[in-house]
């Protein structure tokens, strides 16, 4: 499968500056009653965005100033909780192409990477200054450069951190893992045949 390279992502930001945003918040469980990922974009952050009567709570995802934004800016431990890939899928279908935060939960970051959404970390001060810049000038173009490991705005450059294997696979367009895994079929079978519990624990 040939995939686009995610070496340089450009877009405007949507700041959702909170810590410990869990995947139940990103996509409440009741919207996961489906056998596909289609249509999930409508439900991203649903309960944080809408009152029970459907009126808007003024969440950044509905703030006209950030309309068209594709880079989510957030705090610490984003995506904690459930392993649901529905969460990154909902964000992607809403239009999010990359996430900048202080830190990310591990299963979440793996899920994002496997569907081509880079999650990059900046230190606390840098995230806050980036969020402030976007709040003051919502149309500001942000660039995420995975080759030079930088987040760039017209005003400032920040050094970003990302797990090296995630960086490499996103930048090179090899983040869909199935093909790479399948290449080692013989080695897979060898490991399999040698496992104690497959061999009946006979040495």
């Amino acid at each position: 499968m040939s995939l686009p390279k995610k070496d340089l992502i450009k877009g405007t930001g949507i700041p959702v500056m909170e810590n410990d945003i869990d995947t139940d918040r990103i996509i409440p469980a009741r919207f996961m009653k489906t056998v596909t990922f289609d249509g999930l974009g409508n439900y991203a952050f649903y309960d944080a965005r809408f009152h029970e009567d459907g009126s808007s709570k003024g969440h950044p995802f509905d703030d006209p100033r950030y309309r068209g934004g594709s880079i989510l800016i957030t705090g610490r431990n984003f995506g904690c909780g459930s392993s649901r890939e529905h969460a990154p899928q909902a964000l992607q279908k809403y239009g999010i192409e990359a996430i900048i935060g202080e830190s990310f939960a591990e299963i979440f970051i793996g899920n994002c990477t496997s569907i081509g959404i880079p999650c990059v970390s900046l230190n606390k001060e840098d995230v806050e200054s980036l969020a402030q810049l976007v709040q003051e000038n919502p149309g500001t173009e942000i660039q995420i450069d995975l080759v030079n490991k930088q987040v760039r705005t017209p005003e400032e450059n920040f050094y970003l951190e990302i797990n090296e294997s995630f960086r490499k696979s996103l930048a090179e367009g090899t983040w869909d893992t199935t093909a790479a895994l399948l290449q080692n079929k013989e080695k897979i079978e060898e490991v399999y045949r040698n496992l104690a519990y497959i061999k009946g624990f006979v040495a």
Binding site: S83, E85, P88, G110, I115, T177
Partner: peptide
Amino acid sequence: FGIGTSQIRD
């Protein structure tokens, strides 16, 4: 450990 749907596929 827990995994996401793309990893279930894998």
